[in-house]
Design a binder for these strands. Structure first.
Lengths: 114, 114
DNA sequence: CGGGATCCCATTCGATACTG
DNA sequence: CAGTATCGAATGGGATCCCG
């Protein structure tokens, strides 16, 4: 889903639904799982890729860049050879963890695992 | 986003991330706003369409059907002429409202409105 | 009134090859 | 190691027409 605006009739009353704003941030296919894996510790790019076995580099990069744009994730580049890049949650990212947690609890409580 | 499974290497350790399961349910472009409009009261099809000015009938129907499949929304058909259909939240749908609310609060608290 | 069926389009995902 | 670039495939949204 694209970053969607919830617009009233054009030009009339543009308004953003706050819940939708939240939704947009975590809407990428892998974003939630990335946040989950970063919730406990800082991780390197390759580490994340191993944790997400079916993701390709390009996609992982894009998802991380978008989370970075939204200031959920911090990217720390070490100028070494070979390169080393570490990803971690920003304060904003950490502040979102309770919601992630409650989504998980809700799922386990109410959704029959299909 | 499609209903995505978080799979370990094929055939090896299929597992569904609970948080992702939750995400999948509300991932449709209009689902959150539909749930929002149903949170206070039962509404008819046309009423929902008026509340969501930029949605087409086909899409609204599809979003509602998917919410119904996921048992978030109940569809009550009155056998009248002209037809009358009412949508309301199921108990499952209602149980989700606190999360919707906390997503909204998080957004308003931490996200600078762009 | 409340849809279903169809077609089209934009976005996103994903595979592959290449690179500092 | 951690990317970038490119391209094709899949998904989901939207418009339009038809129907009981």
């Amino acid at each position: 889903m694209a970053r969607s605006w919830f617009t009233q009739p054009p030009e009339e009353h543009k308004e953003v639904c706050p819940v939708t704003q939240t939704q947009d941030i975590i809407a990428g296919k892998w974003k939630i799982i990335i946040l989950w894996h970063l919730s406990t510790k800082t991780r390197r790019f390759n580490e994340l890729q191993r944790l997400l076995p079916n993701i390709s580099k390009g996609i992982l990069t894009r998802q991380l860049r978008e989370l970075e744009e939204d200031q959920m994730v911090h990217r720390e580049v070490y100028k070494e050879v070979p390169p080393k890049v570490e990803y971690s949650l920003t304060p904003l990212g950490k502040s979102f963890l309770p919601i992630l947690h409650s989504m998980g609890e809700w799922s386990k409580k109410y959704l029959k695992s299909k």
